[in-house]
Design a protein around this nucleic acid. Structure first.
Lengths: 227, 227
DNA sequence: ATATTAATAGGAGATATATCCTATTTTGAG
DNA sequence: CTCAAAATAGGATATATCTCCTATTAATAT
């Protein structure tokens, strides 16, 4: 993990993302920017580990990260992917989370970090920020509930078809299969089994390491309102 | 559904619950009380049906309700039970929900209702309320994610044991089995199968329609941090 | 009171998904 | 460039859970 001051930003090509932040979350609280620093994590680096006490709240500027819940029995589940404009530590800011979850960078991850103490004294008293924060939390809530409820109600083939249609790039499904399995909450083995079925049924065609997708066929399995 | 004005409250024995509301959510916005009315629903009455446009935001004073997500395929999943001090319509207030979910009263349900327009002009500008609302949403988020992630990671017997220990009254498990099945997100049939296993293993003993629980034995299956 | 609906109870069978292996290939670190 | 760690690939088997039945009993509404 590397730290940068905001002055060093120019070379990092993050001015657009930071301007965006100022215009949304910090519209009325530009003062917090005086205390902001940048944190940069390497792919697969742990951003937080279970139970850490947070001293900053993060706003993701670039890159993606995974939030895991670690279970008693040693297993863990991917709770969500987070990325641009997502926050880390909002639950700590509001003092509702006993222990932080595991968070791991996926790509190179750059965050703007505000000391929690500053956030508490400035942001929590900024009504515009609180409105944004509430909306943000409400959206998260809807998304998560949708995601899990779908997982409970549709078997993998429907979720997988929907997911592939969502992340497809130029008619190709190029995501890492390990990541897909985690996101959909199934074992890697089972994902593979279903992928093989999809090939047999002509929904997918393997091209090297990736898959060419049969969009119309996949559409027949698609779940509406999944995302 | 019956409507009451706030003046009729005395006979309903809700003064304590309303005082509580004033002290928390409305601490700084007692003005909204001038526009508040009371809605009372009968057991099993639908409070909202899918896609209704909400004109009030509700605060539950008494009773319980179930929130369902209705899926494309006709199935539905219980998203959560809500009860005293829970809100209905917060997502509409924040304008993040396209369509409301199905909500059904379980017992007799009494809510204090504030017109959405009033809530938007008063509550959304009340920083204390916004803080409470954010905390409320953050807690909901944690609870839901926990619940579903647990469901994904532990098989029924662990969740059931944990649930029974949570809702047990004087050493008896008296909940309706249909409700338990919905809450734990499994088929009624499978719940029953597991209940039978529990009896064979001496974790439960049927007493009429209810079950006498073997606490120490159930404890061995309990999931920590489930609720 | 009577009719209807919901809850309880459980048999039989199917299946979606997990667990546990073993190999090969690819990627990343030093 | 080399080695270790992930990712990909898939066989075999087990099982948690579902679906589809059929009764019986309890609750609720007319």
């Amino acid at each position: 993990m590397k730290k940068f001051s905001l002055e060093e930003v120019k070379d990092l090509d993050l001015t657009r993302e930071i301007d965006q932040l100022k215009k949304t979350f910090f519209k009325n609280s530009t003062a917090v920017m005086d205390h902001a620093v940048l944190f940069e994590y390497e792919p697969k680096e742990m951003v937080l580990t279970l139970g850490t006490e947070l001293d900053h709240i993060y706003f993701i500027l670039k890159g993606r990260a995974k939030i895991y819940m670690v279970h008693e029995n040693g297993k863990r589940s991917l709770v969500q992917f987070i990325h641009g404009a997502d926050m880390i530590g909002e639950l700590s800011l509001l003092e509702v989370e006993k222990q932080t979850k595991d968070i791991m960078a996926v790509d190179k991850l750059t965050c703007l970090a505000i000391p929690i103490a500053i956030a508490k004294t400035i942001l929590l008293h900024d009504n515009l920020f609180m409105n944004d924060l509430s909306k943000y939390l409400a959206q998260k809530l809807l998304l998560r509930v949708n995601h899990f409820a779908n997982g409970q109600n549709y078997e993998l083939k429907y979720r997988l078809a929907t997911y592939i249609l969502e992340v497809e790039v130029n008619g190709m499904y190029v995501e890492k299969k390990t990541e897909t399995a985690e996101f959909l909450g199934v074992s890697y083995r089972h994902l593979f089994h279903t992928l093989t079925l999809f090939q047999q049924e002509g929904l997918l065609l393997k091209k090297g390491k990736h898959f060419l997708i049969n969009k119309p066929a996949l559409k027949t399995l698609e779940i509406k309102n999944f995302f």
